[in-house]
Nucleic acid binder design. Structure first.
Lengths: 351, 351
DNA sequence: CTGAAAGCGCTAACAT
DNA sequence: ATGTTAGCGCTTTCAG
């Protein structure tokens, strides 16, 4: 093997520090610091000397030391309920933006627990992150407010945080749901039920609202089942329908997991889609088009969503570094949805 | 609103420090430090006084300052190619273990790029993490070796890292694939092809090896298509089969994404499973049982895998804190797979 | 068992 | 344009 990289003239075995670099470059430590931080008051020749010295001794700035002086780490927090398909797409998009800015990303999945979210938020406070992207699990807005007040930009993703005045990047849940349900109504359905996995979640609440709006506008009676949290409960619900006469002729599934559970349950109970029952789901997924019956969905774009959010965040981070006085006026960005027609709604499958 | 939490007797507006706590508790700073770090040389009464003072002033230790003194952050790194279904399950399991130890998790998705992996590995070096869990994207073993040598425990997950002697938690890829292929052979198939998304990846290579072994053991000719990286290429491949007479009668898909692409392609080209062509895939997924034809798979358990890996990691972290001299003897844990029979292999769907 | 002093590596605030 | 000094909050000596 080749010789180990020399640790410079300093103590052997230890990471080189700016002092080692300063010695090597025959300049003061402050000059080195200025080079590292891209101050423009360094003569190009000096800068070059320092740069070369940095490379020669293999110096890497010590984040801990900078943070001690009040600087924040080049790291953003990313808090989500879980890393299911949708949120992991969000993560990839956000991380991509972070990497472009040379930031790392610290991920926390709360497991959909507000308590865990709160606990982790407290932990995050100690890590001197530069900013936070959060899909809330219903945690405490106060904690976030404190973070904000202590100078950490926060952007809400997918859902607003109650009691927090922050940038938010959301989806047209209500309108999207309305459009999906309206499509079922246009197919002639009169009895349309709505199933959801967790009616407490903002996005689901909104979609259910959209569903109700569409139903009422058509003079139809909403039938909401907002908390079907397992395949078993879904089977129970669907089974009840298949046995009685008052089976709805169509169903709107308010989130991805509901669509999946619904399809699984329908499959097990032996109801055919769309002949026995038509289905439209909210949120698209990879396999939606190779299911027994390809699923019609209201689709959203997790990557654009998260990319916007991350860009908003870094805009704030950069501003915060310059002028700390100005009041930030929270931005709200709302992304539209798109109805993707496949077979489950009753449309004939087309090429 | 209630009164803001007082910042103690120190400078108002700033986070309280151990000095504030010491003053409040009428003890020296060192005593406070000892309490925080659970030294057992503190009289219970003193400890109580300090604890109460800590609570009163709302003190939270400053990680940056501790790290300056050479301690590592209560944070582990988690590097993966992406956060697809499989790896996000891994993440959840690993984070759960980390949280139990009161550690945070820093996630990096490399996008399957060895270059990104290397770059991020360098970044990680500055963050003084306590340990690293890595599913390599083919990055440089040397960098990891340096991390290890600088005292950061590393555990390889799902794939070993070339040129690195570290704990590893793997899956019986070869045996699992063999079993899956053997099952197809038992169904009477003679012409069985194997498709993969990326033949360079360790796990896929191993599974292909298992496939070949099973084929050769039965005196059959292996037909490997190891780099079908898109739906288009898969459709092309499948289309070619449907037009000629030398169509294989069964296919073994070496990874999840291959199974999915294969099924999509088969669906588009109009080949029925298992009548026209039987399929067995490696790695189970949520919707495998509600596809047009429920998919038979060789399943692995991402959560047990990642949990073991995380536990191994924390075992090392704890050891490293105590005795730094002892040589670590790398552990290898290999998890078995399980063949889940559904309909795509030709078995009749059963209740 | 407890305390006082000396830095860890860096940067803000002053020199020069 | 560059150098010097004084800490940031904590823990590691070393003394009580």
């Amino acid at each position: 093997m080749a010789t180990m990289k020399s640790a410079g003239a300093g103590r052997p075995g230890r990471q080189p520090t700016i002092i080692d670099v300063a010695r090597e470059a025959h300049v003061g430590v402050m000059t080195v610091s200025r080079v590292i931080n891209n101050y423009d008051t360094v003569k190009p020749v000096t800068r070059a000397k320092v740069m070369s010295a940095i490379a020669r001794v293999g110096y890497r700035p010590n984040d801990a030391a900078r943070m001690l002086k009040g600087m924040r780490a080049r790291m953003i927090g990313f808090i989500v309920p879980d890393l299911s398909d949708f949120f992991s797409s969000c993560f990839h998009a956000a991380q991509k933006v972070a990497m472009q800015h040379d930031y790392q990303t610290m991920v926390v999945a709360t497991g959909r627990s507000a308590a865990v979210e709160n606990r982790q938020l407290d932990s995050l406070g100690n890590h001197r992150i530069s900013g936070l992207l959060i899909v809330t699990s219903g945690g405490d807005g106060q904690r976030l407010k404190h973070l904000q007040e202590s100078g950490i930009p926060v952007v809400a993703l997918d859902r607003p945080v109650a009691g927090l005045d922050a940038d938010a990047v959301l989806v047209e849940n209500r309108e999207g749901a309305e459009q999906g349900v309206r499509h079922l109504i246009e197919h002639g359905h009169k009895s349309i039920a709505c199933v959801g996995f967790d009616g407490d979640v903002f996005t689901v609440r909104e979609r259910i609202e959209g569903y109700k709006q569409a139903m009422r506008a058509a003079g139809l009676e909403p039938q909401v089942f907002a908390d079907i949290q397992s395949l078993e409960r879904m089977e129970e619900l669907v089974g009840r329908w298949s046995n009685t006469k008052k089976k709805p002729s169509a169903i709107f599934a308010a989130q991805r997991i509901s669509s999946i559970r619904l399809i699984q349950a329908l499959h097990r109970v032996g109801l055919r889609v769309p002949q026995d029952i038509a289905v439209v789901g909210f949120d698209d997924f990879e396999l939606a088009d190779v299911l027994g019956t390809p699923l019609t969905v209201v689709s959203q774009s997790p990557t654009s969503l998260a990319q916007s959010a991350a860009e908003l965040l870094f805009k704030q981070i950069e501003q915060a570094q310059q002028e700390s006085g100005t009041e930030h006026h929270p931005a709200k960005i709302i992304f539209p949805t798109r109805l993707i027609l496949r077979a489950s709604c009753g449309c004939s499958p087309k090429a």
